[in-house]
Design a protein around this nucleic acid. Structure first.
Lengths: 336, 336
DNA sequence: ATGAAAGCGCTAACAT
DNA sequence: ATGTTAGCGCTTTCAT
């Protein structure tokens, strides 16, 4: 009579054993049928599958993990969720992983190396099959942290671990070339924190080209932030640069807004190039010209490399470097 | 001699048994010591802990999960990572969960109800202790999907499941009040997709107040997107509204940029209010006046409610509603 | 093709 | 306070 879910009982989940019993086959056959492994007769398989479906059977992946040593879970560790760059990356990683049948634990470290260490430990305890790691800083050697769990590092330089990078140096150069090609002679640089190699390289790439083909008017550092420090605000107000290369889009956006607020028109009075191509870049006013890295491809490569290591730990340790590209929008033009 | 990790062997992880053996105690005592459960002598506990540390012991949480029926993992399911609103929410959920010792599987459904169903199943299989769910649409009844896993829904209305909402109606009214208080008499509305209750309520709240205290010049719908549809672009260009309420910040930003592009100054010629207070709102030009919901508190409440249900399923099903607030920035002013 | 049974690492009765 | 031991649900070897 009552098919309603009022028969809650203790609501125990149905197990493979229940299915096997209901289907009147052995545990093994049920397992074979459901996983498509061993050998089972066609009608048996079909029958088991039907029963399982009818009983709403769901595998217990913890149990399976214990037997197989594989959890089918991956970990993603990144410094800060609030930063839009990491968000794009997270999305790509999660989707790539899903496409390969993996689920991902996501955690951020709030920029704190202590939390980072704890996060790594936690992932290992949880038995993730692999870790995609965007470290806070470059590291001499990261092997102690990962405890033999297959890991690939994105964007940073960490000894002893496979890495996926973009060609930051070339990217910086690309930005500078663009500015010089436009005819700019007096160019300023506002870098992000120089503590990470990827930032040093962007700026080195840009500066080398600028010094050779134009003039470097200033070279300042700012936090990885939309808010500008006093010295860079002053440099903008001094107006002796006709163009600025910013080491990150967030900073570039800050530059644009400070310039606008102090009466400089972008791009007429001041051209601005960023780096990263975060989503915000498209909706800024004017839309930001920037250097893009192929985030999606980098994420896919990270996952591929990771799963390759999961299959067989004896992988050569590689570092794959992706090309960057100039995305020309409206924040740059010829100097007046 | 060689203490270097060259003795890789088969690199088997050290188990509790190994620790117990090395510490010369029973498995149980080792477990007690490490989990701080049962009763163990102080020196024994200390000894076990030291050995475990020295051997780099890490619990196997799959095994523990199998015994205890608890995985210590939560699932977060949301429609779309690219949308900045979900990102803030995800960050808050992850941090709240971490504070309570939980790790979270994150997945997006790309706005596809099919993927949503699959995601729910996957979470159940993985044995998450609970699910924080931001559904794509409102649902008559969601109980079939969750298969008895404790779940709390955010922002949507789903029958049979605990919910955490903001007071959308009051928020919409707040926005309208602000515009009317500024002296606007001709106000337009650009809503987001009306298929979800939270959007219908925002707009209902705004429109009711506008019709009573000013004039509703137009009432259009747009996708949840920065890009504007033809009819709303035309409505803006027609210039018979001095202010616009947008059902979402993303849309508000689109309105601002289209207005600017067609020669309207914001806020002088056109005031714009949004809804959500996404991170981008602060950096738009001009910074966007908007209605904020307390995302962090909502996430914390969701996690709390969830964990309460995890402790004991026999919780009354509640719906908790948070207040919204007006964030006054620079996109609104008195009409000229 | 199918079944019986061992055991993954752990926790929690239960004995001592 | 400490030890012994029975499973949790599953996969997989080994018989049949």
């Amino acid at each position: 009579m009552s098919t309603d879910p009022a028969d809650v009982k203790s609501a125990k989940r149905v197990t493979l054993k229940d299915v096997a019993k209901a289907a009147e086959v052995s545990l093994a056959s049920a397992s074979y049928a459901i996983n498509g492994t061993g050998s089972v007769g066609d009608q048996v398989r079909a029958h088991v599958l039907k029963i399982a479906e009818a009983m709403c059977y769901r595998q217990n992946l913890s149990a399976r993990a214990m037997r197989t040593g594989r959890t089918g879970a991956l970990g993603l560790i990144l410094p800060d969720f609030a930063n839009p760059f990491f968000t794009s990356l997270a999305q790509s990683v999660i989707r790539s992983a899903r496409a390969q049948g993996y689920c991902v634990f996501v955690t951020d470290t709030e920029g704190d190396p202590n939390q980072e260490r704890k996060a790594m430990h936690l992932m290992v305890e949880r038995g993730v099959d692999g870790i995609v790691w965007f470290p806070i800083h470059d590291l001499e050697n990261g092997t102690a942290l990962i405890n033999d769990t297959p890991t690939v590092v994105i964007d940073r330089t960490v000894g002893g671990i496979e890495q996926v990078h973009a060609d930051y140096h070339a990217g910086g150069r690309l930005a500078a070339e663009h500015l010089v090609a436009l005819g700019h002679k007096r160019i300023g640089v506002v870098s992000g924190p120089m503590s990470v190699l990827s930032m040093r390289e962007r700026c080195a790439g840009a500066i080398a080209f600028i010094e050779q083909h134009a003039g470097l008017v200033f070279n300042l550092t700012n936090a990885f932030s939309y808010d500008l420090e006093a010295d860079v605000r002053m440099a903008i107000e001094r107006r002796d640069a006709t163009a600025i290369f910013a080491g990150a889009d967030l900073i570039a956006l800050g530059v644009i807004q400070h310039a606008s607020r102090t009466g400089l028109r972008v791009p007429d009075d001041l051209s601005v190039v960023g780096f990263d191509d975060i989503p915000w870049a498209q909706i800024s006013a004017p839309p930001l010209t920037t250097i893009e890295m192929p985030v999606e491809e980098m994420a896919a490569e990270a996952i591929d490399a990771l799963l390759r290591r999961v299959e067989s730990r004896a992988q050569p340790r590689r570092k794959v470097v992706f090309e960057t590209a100039l995305i020309e929008r409206k924040s740059t033009s010829r100097p007046l």
